[in-house]
């Protein structure tokens, strides 16, 4: 009985705070994406041929932890299979945040664009049996800064 109450409390806390954190994060992501849109990030490996550019490796990484509510839903989802919707927002936020941080770095270099953008995702929750998913998303690319002819 005590364990049940504890689970209910943890799940509710996870839901309330997780949801608040998520909507706050999304607001900030959407706002910063608009600001950063002047600096395009491209998956293309071929840099533009019109002009001379300095190249620099830029990267942005983010570590994001799960909340109890999400893991609880994911645990239930494990029984039935299907889309793990509760983790989708988690990864979406992490990827977009990583790109934003990469762009931020490129912006301080005065870059015009980032090419050859790639992502790495890794699970860093460790080897414990009852692990809470903690993921790291790392975005990196080549920042191109124009220099005079």
């Amino acid at each position: 009985m005590y364990e049940l109450i504890l689970t209910v409390v943890l799940v509710s806390l996870g839901y309330i705070f997780g949801r608040r954190a998520e909507s706050k994060h999304y607001k900030s992501i959407i706002m910063r994406e608009k600001e950063m849109n002047t600096l395009p990030a491209m998956a293309s490996r071929r840099p533009p041929s019109d002009g001379h550019y300095d190249q620099a490796l830029v990267s942005g990484s983010v570590v994001i932890a799960n909340d109890y509510f999400k893991s609880f839903v994911a645990g239930l989802r494990n029984l039935f299979g299907g889309q793990m919707r509760s983790y989708e927002t988690l990864l979406d936020r992490a990827r977009r945040e990583a790109v934003l941080r990469m762009k931020q770095e490129a912006k301080t270099l005065g870059a015009e664009a980032i090419f050859n953008v790639k992502y790495e995702t890794s699970n860093i929750s460790g080897q414990t049996r009852k692990k809470m998913p903690v993921i790291e998303v790392h975005a990196y690319g080549t920042a191109l800064t124009k220099y005079g002819i």
Binding site: F69, K70, L79, F80, R85, T89
Partner: peptide
């Protein structure tokens, strides 16, 4: 596009009742 519009509590209650 990459995330679901569905309210997370809907998913949660279906799964909980089902299990």
């Amino acid at each position: 596009i990459n995330t679901s519009k569905e309210h997370p509590l809907k998913d949660f209650s279906i799964l909980l009742i089902g299990s």
